[in-house]
Design a protein around this nucleic acid. Structure first.
Lengths: 270, 270
DNA sequence: CGAGTACTTGACCCAGATCAAGCCATGTGG
DNA sequence: CCACATGGCTTGATCTGGGTCAAGTACTCG
C-alpha cells in the first residue's frame, strides 16, 4: 500500500509537457497511472479527452510554464493581485482563502495535485483570494490571455474550460447549502479520498483549523466529530492520518453534501 | 419614482433581438435606460462591451429564442433534465433550487431580469437544480451548442461567457463563507437593490421562505431580523415592500457578505 | 366574504461556538 | 540524547445564535 501511494505521487510529478506528449505522439507512458494521479479538475481531464491534435498539444505545451518549488506557507498569489494566469497543481497542495473586514480568514478551497485554480479571478481581473502552499508545492502556470486565445482556435479546449468552470460552480453552490456539521465533515472526507485517489488511507495535508474554516465549523467541532466517527467505527484517525473504514456509513451521513461522486459518474471519465 | 421604476421595467422587456439590434445597426434605443434595466450578468453585459460586429450580432440573434410567458410557479427546467441551453431572464424572476435526500428544498439562487442561468449544468450535462418562476416570467433561450460554436468564432463572446461564469463562481464562493444572519440578510438586501436597479425602494418578488432558504436561515429569523432592522431605522418593511433608509448602516452590517459592489467597480461597466 | 397562504411574534431548545485546560508530536539548543 | 518550547490537536464545561414549535394576524384571491 505505501508503494502504491508512492507510485501515484510519482505519476503526479510528471510535468504537463509529458502528459500532453503521451496523448500526442512523443512518448509512451502509463496512462492509467497518470489518471489515478490526477483525478479531479485535472490536467488529464483538461488535456486528454478533448480530441486535440498533437499540433494543438504542442501549442498548449508551449504556453505552459512550471513554477516552484514553493515552500510550505509561501503564497502563490495574494488577494488583490492582478489576474494573469490559471494554475494547475503538480505536487503538494494549496489552500485559497480570503480575509474579511474583521481579519478573519475564510478558507475557500483546497487544491490538490491535478487540480486547477484561479477561475474566480477572470471576472474581476484581480484575485479575490490568496493562495498559500500547504506543503512544498509546484504548479504549472497557464497565462490566461494565451490560454483564451488558444481556446479560440481549439474547440475542445474551450469546451473543457467551460466544463471545468461549470464544475467549480457546482462545488461552490453545493458548499453554500445548509448541512449539519456531521454531513459536511463526512462529505469532505469522501471528497478528499476521491480526489487524492488514495483509497481509504488518507493523509490530510491541511491542519484542522483550515478544514474547520472551509466547512464553516470550529476547529474543536472537527476534532470532536472525528473522535465520534472513530468511536462509531466509521474511520480511524490519528493526527493527519485517516483510514476510512465504513465508506457506506460515511456516504449515508455525507452523501447529500458530497459532490464529486455524482459529477464523476456522469462525466464519462474514470 | 414609481414612473422611473416603470420605465426600467419597460426597458427590461426589450427582447434580445432588439437589444442587439441597437448595438448593431437596426434600431436606435436609449442605451442608458437598457443598462439600468439589465445590470448584473446581463444581456447588456453579454452583448454590448465585447466589440461584436453587426454581423456577429445577427448570428447571435439568430440562435436566440424567446420562451414564455411562464406563469408563477411553473418550471423552466427540473433537476435531472438533460442540459440544452443557457437562459436569460427577460421579465419576471426565477429561483433555482435542489431537493436533498430528505426532500428539503435548498434555494441556490434568484435570477432577475437581465441575468443568466444554467451554467452549472454544462459540466454534468444535466441540470443539477430546478428553476421555478417566482412571478409570470419570460426568458431568452440560448442553445448551448450553438452558443459554444459561436463563441469559438467570436472571441468577445467567449471572453464574456468566461467572465460571467467567473462572476457566478465568486458569488457562490462568497455565499459559502461563514457569516452571521445579520450579515447575510443585510448583504442580500443590498445585492437585490443593486441588481434590480430600483434604488432604495424594493419589491421582494420571492417569499420569506425562499430568502431564508437561500441564506441558510429559518423563515422566522428573516422575519425577526427585518423587524429589528426596521426598529433600528435601517429600513422600512411592509410585506414585500422594503425601503432601505440607512444604506451605509446596512453596508456596515453586510459589507463583507455583499459581493456585487466590488465586482461591479472593477469590471469597467456601469 | 371566507379559505388558504404568507408573514409575524413569542417561548423554548439545541447544535455548535467559545472559553479553558491539558496533551502530544516535532524541533532546538545545550 | 535529553529538557523544554512551540504549535497543532483533543477534551471538557459553558454559552448563545438561530432553529423549532406554537399561536396568532393579515394579505390575497377565488
Amino acid at each position: 500500500m505505501p508503494n502504491q501511494v508512492l507510485d501515484k505521487r510519482q505519476a503526479a510529478r510528471v510535468n504537463i509537457g509529458e502528459s500532453l506528449g503521451m496523448k500526442g505522439s512523443r512518448k509512451v507512458v502509463n496512462i492509467t497511472r497518470l489518471r489515478q494521479a490526477c483525478r479531479t479538475c485535472s490536467l488529464v481531464e483538461l488535456c486528454l479527452p478533448m480530441g486535440l491534435t498533437s499540433d494543438d498539444i504542442q501549442q498548449l505545451e508551449s504556453i505552459v510554464k512550471v513554477k516552484g518549488p514553493l515552500e510550505k506557507g509561501a503564497h502563490l498569489f495574494r488577494e488583490g493581485d492582478s489576474f494573469q494566469a490559471i494554475f494547475a497543481v503538480r505536487t503538494g497542495a494549496l489552500k485559497t482563502y480570503s480575509l474579511d473586514a474583521d481579519g478573519r480568514e475564510h478558507v475557500l478551497g483546497f487544491h490538490l495535485p491535478g487540480e486547477l485554480l484561479g477561475f474566480d479571478a477572470i471576472y474581476p481581473r484581480y484575485n479575490r483570494c490568496s493562495a498559500m502552499a500547504l506543503a512544498d508545492t509546484s504548479v504549472c502556470v497557464l497565462p490566461f490571455n494565451q490560454l483564451a486565445d488558444l481556446a479560440q482556435k481549439v474547440s475542445g479546449l474551450q469546451a473543457t474550460i467551460l466544463r471545468l468552470m461549470s464544475k467549480n460552480l457546482s462545488i461552490s453552490a453545493n458548499l453554500a447549502t445548509d448541512h449539519t456539521a456531521e454531513e459536511r465533515l463526512a462529505g469532505f472526507l469522501l471528497s478528499i479520498a476521491q480526489r487524492t485517489g488514495e483509497g481509504s488511507e488518507l493523509r490530510l495535508v491541511m491542519p484542522r483549523r483550515d478544514i474547520a474554516s472551509y466547512l464553516r465549523l470550529a476547529t474543536e467541532t472537527v476534532s470532536r466529530l472525528l473522535a465520534r466517527f472513530q468511536q462509531e467505527e466509521l474511520l480511524e484517525v490519528h493526527r493527519k492520518r485517516v483510514r476510512l473504514i465504513d465508506l457506506d456509513g460515511l456516504r449515508d451521513l455525507g452523501g447529500s453534501f458530497e459532490i464529486a461522486d455524482r459529477t464523476r459518474q456522469r462525466s464519462g471519465y474514470q
